[in-house]
Design a protein around this nucleic acid. Structure first.
Lengths: 170, 170
DNA sequence: CAAATTATGTCAACAGTGCTGACGTAATTA
DNA sequence: TAATTACGTCAGCACTGTTGACATAATTTG
């Protein structure tokens, strides 16, 4: 006579932990780490009326100047309608300029302006400081290990894009 | 006579790289890693008409059964109005139940139901698999190193909350 | 006990960022 | 010449965060 809808609603009082074969600890750490990691630039962006999406666009245009709209969409994995909104604002505020593609005139090559470069650096600075702080007592090998871990977290078919981006010079 | 508004709009053709004293490589890796990390549960959540916010609430209620609304807000760092929307849906769909606080009857202790526990595990499973895969050829010491790094990325004043959560058993 | 505070819920409005679908234009390719 | 491609744009919707305001019940304080 126990109503199943009532039985299902009974509170479970035991906590899930890593013994369920699931790495809750690491899942949580990634959540907290990423949240605080993104909170730094969010503060600055608010002053410009920008959001996280603007940051991403600005970041990749600075990392790969001259990339086309299609290439940017492929890196960000968003739709062109989503991109259009933020890209237009970045262009209107002179952070990014479009240059007609030299070979294919339909293409729009995206470049940062001095203003856009400066903002990209300002946004990256606190993030870089946070990373540096978290890495401060680690060896070069430790850093390489963490890089390998993060890269292995990325979907395999997208890892190629990461290798395109400029790396640390020798 | 060079108009500064034109001068500022000139495209910069050089890419920023780590030589600017900024760790762009790691910044990018964190972006890609976290995006793909969250994409796994997002697929499942869509079937329920839920979003990432539901996942977070469900996660922490399963990790700390009996926490109060105020405690949950403090962990998530969102406003109660933001929480209300998703919490109500999780309660209406019998994933979470509220129990009146035993000492303070104003409080609402939050517990997962069997259904909520099952969903939380289902959402965590692919994330855990991804982590496990990224860690597969690493030693125990490597894992500890990555954990320390991620924890060091979190704002210091919030690290105490992480220690409250259930850890891997001996 | 009465008054102030606390924990929670709720209504309304708005912002940012993603989505789908549809349509238009210019340039390139077949 | 016709089809395709690269890009832009309009409209509408969903999710999740925000502020501000107000309500209720329970606890604490004076």
């Amino acid at each position: 006579m126990t109503d199943s809808s009532i039985a299902d609603a009974k509170p479970i009082r035991t906590a899930v932990a890593d013994e369920d074969g699931i790495d809750f600890t690491m899942i949580e750490l990634l959540f907290f780490a990423y949240r605080d990691f993104t909170s730094d630039p969010d503060q600055i962006l608010a002053d410009y009326g920008f959001g996280r999406a603007h940051h991403r666009v600005l970041h990749f245009v600075n990392r790969r100047p001259g990339l086309t709209v299609a290439e940017l969409l492929d890196v960000l994995k968003i739709t062109k309608q989503s991109l259009a909104r933020v890209l237009k604002q970045l262009i209107d505020t002179d952070h990014i300029v479009q240059v007609q593609g030299p070979r294919d005139r339909r293409q729009r090559e995206l470049y940062p302006t001095a203003k856009g470069r400066a903002l990209a650096l300002a946004l990256a600075r606190p993030q870089s400081r946070r990373i540096h702080g978290a890495l401060r007592d680690g060896s070069v090998a430790d850093r390489a290990l963490i890089e390998r871990f993060l890269k292995a977290m990325v979907n395999p078919e997208l890892r190629a894009q990461i290798d395109i981006l400029p790396k640390k010079p020798a």
